[in-house]
């Protein structure tokens, strides 16, 4: 078994008195793609925000063996290679593609690592489109290009664990295929990935392990292959019928 890179134990996140995440325990091992699927409003984005230190949480979060419950600042986690590509991309719209990428390396730069030129070439090798658009303002990119830039910018931080929030959201099917191909390519390069998706089939096809999140709790977990064949998952998430919940 490969060593654990991230582990949560009974993680709870509340907005005021409303609990959005209830006792969620997940594990991600080095070099794996782990996916969290589930319907809209299941708490997937909330989970990622809590892992990133953007939201206060109760329960344990262990990243690379170190407890980082609640009080650890986002920039410290980024410095340790935990990087989130948010659902809204959060690009720097009026700055160039190259500057967006450069800022992805900010945390490394602060730690005295000045290898961003080389990393940027690697990112351009993965996303040739970004190389073509390097002087263009990020705000003028198409939806697919924005997602590529958001991922490329995250890769500039040389992540140990890359967390992707709905990378396929709002993209054309062809681009979605491209994005998932790149996700697999990143895995081959040794990056561990936590993939949150509504597109359950595509996510389970690339993932090693999967969790089904419903109403803030883990309803089901298993190897991704087994989940693809699980009648409950098929009926709720993969079938044409759409989204009944598993727990109900």
């Amino acid at each position: 078994m490969k060593p654990l890179i991230l582990e949560t134990q009974d993680l709870c996140v509340a907005y005021g008195r409303v609990e959005a995440i209830h006792k969620v325990s997940i594990r991600i091992r080095e070099g794996e793609i782990v996916t969290v699927i589930g319907p809209n409003g299941a708490g997937k984005t909330t989970l990622l925000s809590a892992l990133m230190g953007l939201l206060p949480a109760r329960g344990d979060i262990r990243y690379q063996g170190q407890l980082s419950s609640g009080s650890t600042a986002v920039d410290k986690l980024v410095g340790k290679g935990l990087v989130l590509v948010p659902e809204k991309r959060e690009l720097f719209g009026s700055m160039s593609v190259a500057d967006n990428l450069l800022l992805g390396a900010f945390a490394r730069h602060r730690r005295g690592l000045r290898d961003h030129a080389k990393t940027m070439d690697e990112v351009f090798a993965i996303f040739p489109r970004l190389a073509e658009r390097r002087t263009q303002e990020a705000g003028t990119l198409s939806g697919g290009e924005r997602q590529m830039l958001a991922m490329g910018r995250a890769l500039m931080a040389k992540p140990t664990l890359l967390m992707l929030d709905e990378p396929s959201l709002g993209l054309a099917p062809l681009i979605v295929r491209e994005i998932f191909r790149i996700v697999q390519q990143l895995k081959a390069m040794g990056v561990s990935i936590l993939l949150v998706e509504q597109n359950a089939r595509a996510a389970l096809q690339v993932a090693d392990y999967g969790y089904v999140l419903e109403n803030g709790s883990v309803a089901l977990e298993n190897d991704a292959r087994s989940l693809l064949d699980d009648p409950r998952v098929i009926e709720s998430y993969l079938g044409l019928g759409g989204s009944h919940s598993i727990a109900a």
């Binding site: 953007l54 410095g79 719209g93 009026s94 992805g104």
Partner: peptide, 12 residues
């Protein structure tokens, strides 16, 4: 330009 984006890049 984007506080959240900057935070996520480790710009505190």
């Amino acid at each position: 330009i984007n506080r959240t984006g900057a935070r996520l890049m480790g710009i505190s």
